[in-house]
Design a binder for these strands. Structure first.
Lengths: 161, 161
DNA sequence: CCTTCTCAATAGGCCTTACTCTTGAGAAGC
DNA sequence: GCTTCTCAAGAGTAAGGCCTATTGAGAAGG
């Protein structure tokens, strides 16, 4: 068995959990998480800042990435993700319709969680994003998003200690 | 319905996912993840550095935290967690047996994951730990561990882009 | 040309069932 | 006194069934 930390040569690339929890968003609408939907969204997440793609481009890139997704599904998925607010539709005057990732806002969005009672606080910290950028570029990666999970004891549980 | 981000008044405190994935470790041994096991391990994680507890102390603290766990289960669980290497047994000359969290080593242990192909790299960065400490103390929390997940595109996928 | 629709085949995921690991209480061991 | 054992009740979770959302291929619409 090959090392689980390495990329497979080809075939079906493994899928990663989505940041916004695509799973949950779909679930709320009574819809299902499928490999195709994950791949389309993942494709946009992997793009550099502000880049947009047409349906045909999405289709071609997925085929190039060894992910067999039909064109009809690409169109359906783009429409779905747009209606969910995850993608934004652009109407370029010259070309046709294009899509880009919506809400590229909080790329560093962190959590402080009490290990005892579960209380959760959120915070932001640009230094964390900087550390993420450093680690990414240090390994030749291009950063998409970074999330810091701080496990801790909250004031109430410390008092109760 | 109360805010999900706040600690419940009492009763059964919610449980958090374990860092080392207690779930997986148990599963490999054909054993199950139970609230009692999570609570005992969580109790040790919430302790300050190098602190140790006797079985009776564990029992009392759990009762104090509104977690009804029988003494027999405390003993069984301490033995189990020790055999799994998550706790370490101390034989103090004066008192009786005591336990402490083993491998308090990597409290800042981070991941770089390719959103396209799933390739994963690990790295460490003391600045992240510092940011975690800052966030924790800023909110009155006491840090236990912090994990940074950097979602990115790996060199191979960038080339294939 | 670009996009949506049709429809049979596929598969995500909820639910139920069953198995056996765990727990709680108290007795027993050391 | 501290720790482990006994055993019936309880609960985690793997497996299988089922329902229906989703997909792929190609035709149809604009």
């Amino acid at each position: 068995m090959p090392s689980p930390s390495q990329a497979p040569a080809a075939a079906h690339p493994p899928l990663q959990p989505q940041p916004t929890s695509l799973r949950a968003s779909l679930h709320d609408r009574g819809q299902r998480l499928t490999p195709q939907r994950q791949r389309v969204l993942g494709l946009f997440e992997g793009l550099g800042e502000g880049r947009h793609l047409s349906a045909e481009e999405v289709h071609q890139r997925l085929l190039g990435a060894q992910a067999r997704v039909s064109l009809a599904t690409v169109y359906r998925t783009l429409r779905l993700l747009s209606s969910m607010g995850l993608l934004q539709e652009l109407e370029l005057p010259e070309g046709g319709r294009r899509f880009e990732l919506a809400g590229d806002a909080h790329r560093d969005h962190h959590h402080l969680v009490c290990v005892r009672c579960g209380r959760t606080e959120e915070f932001e910290n640009p230094q964390v994003l900087a550390a993420g950028e450093a680690a990414a570029s240090g390994h030749g990666f291009r950063l998409v998003e970074c999330v810091l999970n701080v496990r801790a004891l909250c004031p109430g549980c410390i008092a109760n200690d």
